[in-house]
């Protein structure tokens, strides 16, 4: 616990950790927003969420190896993943709508394994770790005590921009209204002439596109490899559980908070325990929510 003392002695370190964490937390918000969308509209928890993020990262990385600047990879990743999502819906996910929980959970879990192994195969991306350095340099604050990679600032701004664009889309566009109507009452929406099947396809594709954009940011800020997807699924789930499905501002706040909490935990416990912290936090959060509900004689379900 020497690191705690370090934090107490040099408060500027805490600021560094906080800023870093909040900035990258915005990336988690994107994937979490997608999960909330699919959960709310289709009542499916997509366990393959993290794999979509990683796949988005690979799209940007592939472009990067051909000399394209990774920032330009963000829209491409989103677009490619949009079609991947649409394809996934048409191939499998449409069979999961209105099926019982067991089916949708395990089927998306199977898709998650499938995507991991597909990406891991030597003929596809292979098991190596990749990243795409955008070469943006760093910003020095407080006379150099705080160093912020510009890409993290850019990631934060991009994540906010994408989230805002989505919010406008959901409010203003016809398709967005159809999605919201279906989320509220799919039978009524169907009776009113909404093609719910198309709405579901669009929802899932949008979710994949959000994950794709998040993945493009991940490959610039950190690294990707085929098997680290699950942690993004868990982060998204945690954020949505804390915030609630319909709560956009809450998702943003929870995501940024998670980013900061993770950064502190990684510093205090050591980097090798950062992932352990995330998964343990998930268990703790669920138990805490369940305990709170239990006192009101309710069950988390």
């Amino acid at each position: 616990m020497d690191n705690i003392q370090l934090l107490l002695q040099a408060p500027v370190f805490s600021v560094q950790l906080l800023v870093d964490g909040v900035l990258v937390g915005a990336i988690f918000v994107l994937a979490a927003y997608g999960m909330a969308l699919v959960w709310g509209v289709m009542n499916i928890i997509n366990v393959a969420q993290g794999e979509l993020v990683i796949l988005g990262g690979y799209v940007t990385w592939t472009l990067f190896t051909f000399g394209v600047h990774p920032l330009a990879g963000i829209p491409v990743s989103a677009a490619v993943l949009f079609f991947v999502g649409w394809g996934m819906y048409r191939a499998v996910v449409f069979r999961l709508v209105e099926r019982d929980l067991f089916v949708s959970l395990l089927a998306t879990f199977g898709i998650s394994i499938l995507l991991q192994q597909l990406m891991n195969h030597n003929l596809v991306f292979g098991p190596d770790i990749h990243s795409a350095d955008p070469g943006l340099g760093s910003l020095l604050l407080l006379g150099g005590d705080i160093v912020i990679a510009n890409i993290k600032l850019a990631a934060f701004a991009m994540a906010l921009a994408v989230a805002a664009a989505l919010a406008v889309f959901m409010k203003r566009s016809r398709a967005g209204r159809a999605i919201r109507a279906t989320a509220q009452n799919n039978r009524a929406a169907r009776l009113m002439g909404v093609d719910t099947d198309r709405v579901y396809a669009l929802t899932f594709a949008l979710n994949a596109a959000l994950c794709g954009a998040a993945g493009a940011l991940v490959v610039m800020v950190w690294v990707i490899h085929p098997f680290i997807g699950i942690i993004y699924t868990v982060r998204s789930f945690m954020i949505v559980v804390v915030a609630g499905i319909g709560n956009v501002a809450g998702v943003a706040a929870a995501g940024l908070g998670l980013g900061a909490a993770e950064n502190f935990a990684g510093f205090i416990l050591g980097a090798e325990f950062q992932a352990a912290f995330v998964f343990t936090l998930l268990v703790v959060i669920l138990l805490w929510r369940s305990f709170r509900l239990g006192r009101r004689r309710q069950v988390l379900r």
């Binding site: 959970l105 699950i230 868990v234 998964f279 998930l282 268990v283 138990l287 069950v299 988390l300 379900r301």
Partner: peptide, 12 residues
């Protein structure tokens, strides 16, 4: 916990 929550919690 029930349903999704139990499943994801045990996964974590």
């Amino acid at each position: 916990l029930r349903g999704h929550y139990f499943a994801i919690c045990t996964l974590g």
